[in-house]
Amino acid sequence: METTRFKVNGKSVELQIDPQTPLLWALREQLGLTGTKFGCGMALCGACTVHVDGNAVRSCVTPVKAIAGKQVKTIEGLSTDRSHPVQRAWLQVQVPQCGYCQPGQMMSAAALLGVNANPSDADIDDAMAGNLCRCGTYARIRKAIHVAAELARSAK
């Protein structure tokens, strides 16, 4: 066990933890942030996507030691009042079916909009290709990302 310090959703945390522990388990088991889901455990499905220093990463294969001193954002940190453009767009378009993959989808979408305020369909396909949805909500996800981009632009 070692002490690892980082920030989650703006709050400093300090964990006594095996440094090889996947970030996903630290978030879910140690910190109680269960919005981030376990899907495949091998970075193959994207359900566990969170942001580390603003970039989308797969928390199931990211060891805690790799995020020491960094800023982590989970689905709970997008906003506390559903005001993030991605949250508003997801509600507006009614994207989820079963919903299990959606926290990861939304975090990838938010990361995309962080670097591209007006993504094309091709940009969306490239960015979201690593997030799988067994319900097949891809068309609604793409539509919601366009809506979120528009909401973010109109809010400025």
Binding site: A56, L112, A127, G130
Partner: peptide
């Protein structure tokens, strides 16, 4: 841009 190699 939003699917960097280091994501995985």
């Amino acid at each position: 841009p939003a699917l960097r190699c280091f994501a995985c």
